[in-house]
Protein backbone atom coordinates (compact mmCIF):
# COMPACT_ATOMS: atom_id res chain seq x y z
CA UNK A 1 0.00 0.00 0.00
CA UNK A 2 2.77 2.37 0.90
CA UNK A 3 4.04 2.28 -2.69
CA UNK A 4 0.78 3.53 -4.14
CA UNK A 5 1.59 7.21 -4.14
CA UNK A 6 -0.78 9.57 -5.94
CA UNK A 7 1.75 9.83 -8.73
CA UNK A 8 1.81 6.08 -9.27
CA UNK A 9 -1.94 5.90 -9.08
CA UNK A 10 -2.21 8.54 -11.77
CA UNK A 11 0.16 6.57 -13.92
CA UNK A 12 -1.89 3.40 -13.54
CA UNK A 13 -5.08 5.25 -14.30
CA UNK A 14 -3.56 6.77 -17.41
CA UNK A 15 -2.33 3.39 -18.57
CA UNK A 16 -5.56 1.59 -17.75
CA UNK A 17 -7.32 2.10 -21.10
CA UNK A 18 -4.29 0.89 -23.03
CA UNK A 19 -3.89 -2.13 -20.77
CA UNK A 20 -7.58 -2.95 -20.96
CA UNK A 21 -7.46 -2.62 -24.70
CA UNK A 22 -4.49 -4.95 -24.93
CA UNK A 23 -6.07 -7.45 -22.57
CA UNK A 24 -9.57 -7.50 -23.99
CA UNK A 25 -8.90 -7.18 -27.68
CA UNK A 26 -5.52 -8.72 -28.20
CA UNK A 27 -4.47 -11.02 -25.41
CA UNK A 28 -7.78 -12.65 -24.48
CA UNK A 29 -8.77 -13.59 -28.05
CA UNK A 30 -5.32 -15.01 -28.58
CA UNK A 31 -5.52 -17.06 -25.44
CA UNK A 32 -8.87 -18.33 -26.64
CA UNK A 33 -7.48 -19.10 -30.07
CA UNK A 34 -4.50 -20.85 -28.54
CA UNK A 35 -6.75 -23.06 -26.50
CA UNK A 36 -8.94 -23.91 -29.46
CA UNK A 37 -5.89 -24.77 -31.54
CA UNK A 38 -4.82 -27.44 -29.08
CA UNK A 39 -7.96 -29.50 -29.22
CA UNK A 40 -9.59 -32.01 -31.52
CA UNK A 41 -13.19 -32.89 -32.33
CA UNK A 42 -13.97 -36.40 -31.20
CA UNK A 43 -17.73 -36.32 -31.63
CA UNK A 44 -20.64 -33.91 -32.07
CA UNK A 45 -19.83 -31.03 -29.72
CA UNK A 46 -17.13 -33.05 -27.95
CA UNK A 47 -13.49 -32.05 -27.88
CA UNK A 48 -10.25 -33.34 -26.39
CA UNK A 49 -6.82 -31.81 -26.05
CA UNK A 50 -4.58 -32.71 -28.98
CA UNK A 51 -1.73 -31.63 -31.19
CA UNK A 52 -3.52 -32.95 -34.25
CA UNK A 53 -4.05 -29.51 -35.81
CA UNK A 54 -0.34 -28.75 -35.76
CA UNK A 55 0.52 -32.23 -36.94
CA UNK A 56 -1.85 -31.80 -39.88
CA UNK A 57 -0.02 -28.64 -40.83
CA UNK A 58 3.35 -30.31 -40.97
CA UNK A 59 2.12 -33.51 -42.57
CA UNK A 60 0.00 -31.93 -45.29
CA UNK A 61 2.33 -30.47 -47.93
CA UNK A 62 -0.50 -28.28 -49.22
CA UNK A 63 -0.65 -26.20 -46.03
CA UNK A 64 3.07 -26.15 -45.66
CA UNK A 65 3.53 -25.00 -49.26
CA UNK A 66 0.95 -22.28 -48.87
CA UNK A 67 2.71 -21.13 -45.72
CA UNK A 68 6.10 -20.90 -47.43
CA UNK A 69 4.63 -19.35 -50.54
CA UNK A 70 2.90 -16.67 -48.49
CA UNK A 71 6.10 -15.90 -46.62
CA UNK A 72 8.24 -15.75 -49.75
CA UNK A 73 5.82 -13.57 -51.67
CA UNK A 74 5.45 -11.26 -48.71
CA UNK A 75 9.22 -10.94 -48.55
CA UNK A 76 9.41 -10.17 -52.26
CA UNK A 77 6.63 -7.63 -51.91
CA UNK A 78 8.45 -6.03 -48.99
CA UNK A 79 11.73 -5.77 -50.85
CA UNK A 80 10.05 -4.40 -53.97
CA UNK A 81 8.08 -1.91 -51.91
CA UNK A 82 11.33 -0.76 -50.33
CA UNK A 83 13.06 -0.39 -53.68
CA UNK A 84 10.10 1.50 -55.13
CA UNK A 85 9.45 3.66 -52.09
CA UNK A 86 13.03 4.75 -51.53
CA UNK A 87 13.38 7.13 -54.51
CA UNK A 88 9.91 8.51 -53.83
CA UNK A 89 10.68 9.04 -50.16
CA UNK A 90 13.96 10.67 -51.12
CA UNK A 91 12.22 13.04 -53.49
CA UNK A 92 9.61 13.99 -50.92
CA UNK A 93 12.05 14.28 -48.03
CA UNK A 94 14.97 15.94 -49.77
CA UNK A 95 14.18 17.28 -53.22
CA UNK A 96 10.64 18.63 -53.07
CA UNK A 97 10.09 21.85 -51.15
CA UNK A 98 7.10 23.72 -49.83
CA UNK A 99 3.86 23.25 -51.72
CA UNK A 100 5.23 20.59 -54.03
CA UNK A 101 6.24 18.53 -51.01
CA UNK A 102 2.82 18.82 -49.42
CA UNK A 103 1.24 17.96 -52.74
CA UNK A 104 3.37 14.88 -53.20
CA UNK A 105 2.64 13.69 -49.68
CA UNK A 106 -1.06 14.18 -50.29
CA UNK A 107 -0.76 12.27 -53.55
CA UNK A 108 0.73 9.28 -51.78
CA UNK A 109 -2.09 9.40 -49.24
CA UNK A 110 -4.83 9.87 -51.79
CA UNK A 111 -5.41 6.19 -52.68
CA UNK A 112 -6.05 5.50 -49.01
CA UNK A 113 -9.14 7.65 -49.00
CA UNK A 114 -10.84 4.83 -50.85
CA UNK A 115 -11.33 1.52 -49.11
CA UNK A 116 -8.98 -1.34 -49.78
CA UNK A 117 -11.74 -3.17 -51.60
CA UNK A 118 -12.30 -0.28 -53.98
CA UNK A 119 -8.59 0.02 -54.64
CA UNK A 120 -8.27 -3.67 -55.35
CA UNK A 121 -11.30 -3.62 -57.63
CA UNK A 122 -9.65 -0.72 -59.42
CA UNK A 123 -6.79 -3.01 -60.38
CA UNK A 124 -9.35 -5.57 -61.49
CA UNK A 125 -10.83 -3.07 -63.91
CA UNK A 126 -7.44 -1.96 -65.21
CA UNK A 127 -5.89 -5.38 -65.71
CA UNK A 128 -8.74 -7.62 -66.85
CA UNK A 129 -8.67 -8.96 -70.41
CA UNK A 130 -11.15 -6.38 -71.65
CA UNK A 131 -9.70 -3.77 -69.30
CA UNK A 132 -7.84 -0.57 -70.00
CA UNK A 133 -4.24 -1.75 -69.90
CA UNK A 134 -4.54 -4.96 -71.99
CA UNK A 135 -6.60 -3.08 -74.58
CA UNK A 136 -4.02 -0.32 -74.70
CA UNK A 137 -1.13 -2.77 -75.05
CA UNK A 138 -2.94 -4.44 -77.95
CA UNK A 139 -3.74 -1.05 -79.48
CA UNK A 140 -0.14 0.12 -79.53
CA UNK A 141 0.93 -3.28 -80.81
CA UNK A 142 2.88 -4.64 -77.84
CA UNK A 143 0.62 -7.69 -77.89
CA UNK A 144 -1.39 -9.11 -80.80
CA UNK A 145 -4.59 -9.16 -78.80
CA UNK A 146 -5.59 -8.11 -75.30
CA UNK A 147 -3.82 -10.33 -72.78
CA UNK A 148 -5.30 -11.26 -69.43
CA UNK A 149 -3.09 -9.55 -66.87
CA UNK A 150 -5.12 -10.67 -63.90
CA UNK A 151 -4.79 -13.83 -61.88
CA UNK A 152 -1.00 -14.13 -61.91
CA UNK A 153 1.30 -14.06 -58.94
CA UNK A 154 2.77 -10.87 -60.35
CA UNK A 155 -0.69 -9.33 -60.19
CA UNK A 156 -0.93 -10.19 -56.52
CA UNK A 157 2.45 -8.58 -55.95
CA UNK A 158 1.35 -5.42 -57.73
CA UNK A 159 -1.76 -5.26 -55.56
CA UNK A 160 0.12 -6.00 -52.36
CA UNK A 161 2.78 -3.40 -53.04
CA UNK A 162 0.21 -0.84 -54.04
CA UNK A 163 -1.82 -1.30 -50.90
CA UNK A 164 1.17 -1.21 -48.57
CA UNK A 165 3.47 1.32 -50.20
CA UNK A 166 2.37 4.14 -47.93
CA UNK A 167 3.43 2.22 -44.87
CA UNK A 168 6.91 1.97 -46.32
CA UNK A 169 6.94 5.58 -47.46
CA UNK A 170 6.06 7.31 -44.23
CA UNK A 171 8.83 5.87 -42.02
CA UNK A 172 11.29 6.30 -44.88
CA UNK A 173 10.36 9.95 -45.35
CA UNK A 174 10.66 10.48 -41.60
CA UNK A 175 14.05 8.84 -41.51
CA UNK A 176 15.38 10.68 -44.55
CA UNK A 177 14.10 14.04 -43.39
CA UNK A 178 16.29 13.83 -40.32
CA UNK A 179 19.36 13.23 -42.46
CA UNK A 180 21.46 16.39 -42.41
CA UNK A 181 22.21 17.38 -46.02
CA UNK A 182 25.67 18.46 -44.98
CA UNK A 183 26.53 14.82 -44.24
CA UNK A 184 25.96 14.03 -47.89
CA UNK A 185 27.89 17.08 -48.99
CA UNK A 186 30.70 16.22 -46.62
CA UNK A 187 30.91 12.69 -47.99
CA UNK A 188 30.83 14.04 -51.54
CA UNK A 189 33.49 16.58 -50.63
CA UNK A 190 35.70 13.84 -49.20
CA UNK A 191 35.60 11.95 -52.48
CA UNK A 192 32.53 9.74 -52.13
CA UNK A 193 30.41 8.97 -55.19
CA UNK A 194 26.63 8.49 -55.31
CA UNK A 195 26.65 4.76 -54.78
CA UNK A 196 29.09 4.95 -51.94
CA UNK A 197 27.22 7.77 -50.21
CA UNK A 198 24.01 5.78 -50.55
CA UNK A 199 25.65 2.73 -49.00
CA UNK A 200 27.74 4.35 -46.31
CA UNK A 201 25.74 7.41 -45.28
CA UNK A 202 22.12 7.36 -46.42
CA UNK A 203 21.19 3.74 -45.86
CA UNK A 204 22.86 3.47 -42.44
CA UNK A 205 21.09 6.66 -41.41
CA UNK A 206 17.74 5.49 -42.74
CA UNK A 207 18.17 1.96 -41.38
CA UNK A 208 15.67 2.30 -38.52
CA UNK A 209 13.13 3.73 -40.97
CA UNK A 210 13.84 0.96 -43.45
CA UNK A 211 13.39 -1.62 -40.71
CA UNK A 212 10.17 -0.02 -39.50
CA UNK A 213 8.71 0.23 -42.99
CA UNK A 214 9.73 -3.29 -43.89
CA UNK A 215 8.21 -4.72 -40.72
CA UNK A 216 4.94 -2.92 -41.38
CA UNK A 217 4.74 -3.88 -45.03
CA UNK A 218 5.75 -7.45 -44.32
CA UNK A 219 3.14 -7.89 -41.61
CA UNK A 220 0.48 -6.20 -43.70
CA UNK A 221 1.12 -8.37 -46.75
CA UNK A 222 1.45 -11.53 -44.72
CA UNK A 223 -1.90 -10.82 -43.10
CA UNK A 224 -3.59 -9.44 -46.21
CA UNK A 225 -6.67 -11.36 -47.25
CA UNK A 226 -8.50 -9.32 -49.82
CA UNK A 227 -5.80 -8.64 -52.38
CA UNK A 228 -4.62 -12.22 -52.93
CA UNK A 229 -8.21 -13.45 -53.06
CA UNK A 230 -9.45 -10.86 -55.53
CA UNK A 231 -6.39 -10.55 -57.75
CA UNK A 232 -5.02 -14.06 -57.35
CA UNK A 233 -5.46 -16.69 -59.99
CA UNK A 234 -6.64 -20.26 -60.01
CA UNK A 235 -3.62 -21.52 -58.12
CA UNK A 236 -3.04 -18.59 -55.84
CA UNK A 237 -3.03 -19.76 -52.26
CA UNK A 238 -2.60 -17.31 -49.43
CA UNK A 239 -2.31 -18.45 -45.88
CA UNK A 240 -4.92 -16.07 -44.49
CA UNK A 241 -7.32 -17.44 -47.09
CA UNK A 242 -6.63 -20.88 -45.67
CA UNK A 243 -7.44 -19.59 -42.18
CA UNK A 244 -10.65 -17.99 -43.39
CA UNK A 245 -11.65 -21.17 -45.18
CA UNK A 246 -11.01 -23.30 -42.14
CA UNK A 247 -13.05 -21.03 -39.92
CA UNK A 248 -15.92 -20.13 -42.22
CA UNK A 249 -16.50 -22.80 -44.85
CA UNK A 250 -15.04 -25.88 -43.16
CA UNK A 251 -16.35 -25.03 -39.68
CA UNK A 252 -12.98 -26.27 -38.48
CA UNK A 253 -12.11 -23.66 -35.86
CA UNK A 254 -9.45 -25.87 -34.37
CA UNK A 255 -7.46 -26.06 -37.60
CA UNK A 256 -8.03 -22.38 -38.31
CA UNK A 257 -6.80 -21.39 -34.87
CA UNK A 258 -3.68 -23.51 -35.27
CA UNK A 259 -3.00 -21.87 -38.64
CA UNK A 260 -3.50 -18.42 -37.11
CA UNK A 261 -0.96 -19.22 -34.44
CA UNK A 262 1.53 -20.53 -36.95
CA UNK A 263 1.17 -17.32 -38.95
CA UNK A 264 1.75 -15.25 -35.83
CA UNK A 265 4.84 -17.32 -35.10
CA UNK A 266 6.12 -16.95 -38.64
CA UNK A 267 5.80 -13.19 -38.71
CA UNK A 268 7.44 -12.87 -35.31
CA UNK A 269 10.36 -15.06 -36.29
CA UNK A 270 10.91 -13.36 -39.63
CA UNK A 271 10.76 -9.88 -38.13
CA UNK A 272 13.17 -10.94 -35.42
CA UNK A 273 15.52 -12.43 -38.02
CA UNK A 274 15.32 -9.33 -40.18
CA UNK A 275 16.22 -7.07 -37.26
CA UNK A 276 19.02 -9.41 -36.22
CA UNK A 277 20.54 -9.51 -39.70
CA UNK A 278 20.42 -5.75 -40.19
CA UNK A 279 21.59 -5.11 -36.64
CA UNK A 280 18.59 -2.99 -35.75
CA UNK A 281 16.85 -2.81 -32.45
CA UNK A 282 13.09 -3.25 -32.38
CA UNK A 283 12.55 -0.20 -30.18
CA UNK A 284 14.53 2.02 -32.57
CA UNK A 285 12.57 0.77 -35.54
CA UNK A 286 9.23 1.29 -33.83
CA UNK A 287 10.10 4.84 -32.85
CA UNK A 288 10.43 5.62 -36.54
CA UNK A 289 6.91 4.66 -37.41
Amino acid sequence: MNTLTPKRLTLYLLLAPAILWLLLLIILPHVGMGMISFRERIGPGEFAGSLKQYRTFFEEPLYWNTFVRTAVMSLIATIMALVMAFPVAWTIAKVAKGRLKALMLAATLLPFWASELVRTLGWLILLRGSGVIPQFLAFIGVTDQPVELLYHDATILVGLIYSSLLFMLVPLINALETLDDSLIEAAYDLGGNRLNILRKIIIPHAAPGIAAGSIMVFMLTLGNYLTPVVLGGKSSMWFTEQIYTQFITRFNWEQGAAFAFLLLGLSSVLVWLGLKITGQRFADAMRRT
Partner: peptide
Amino acid sequence: PNRRPVNMVFQHLALF
Protein backbone atom coordinates in the same frame (compact mmCIF):
# COMPACT_ATOMS: atom_id res chain seq x y z
CA PRO B 1 33.34 18.46 -55.53
CA ASN B 2 34.59 14.92 -55.06
CA ARG B 3 37.30 15.53 -57.67
CA ARG B 4 38.55 18.89 -56.41
CA PRO B 5 41.78 19.15 -54.42
CA VAL B 6 39.70 20.98 -51.83
CA ASN B 7 38.17 19.82 -48.59
CA MET B 8 35.72 21.53 -46.37
CA VAL B 9 35.05 21.69 -42.67
CA PHE B 10 31.31 22.23 -42.34
CA GLN B 11 29.58 24.69 -40.09
CA HIS B 12 28.08 21.91 -37.97
CA LEU B 13 31.04 19.70 -38.76
CA ALA B 14 28.93 17.02 -40.52
CA LEU B 15 30.75 14.16 -38.86
CA PHE B 16 29.20 10.82 -39.80
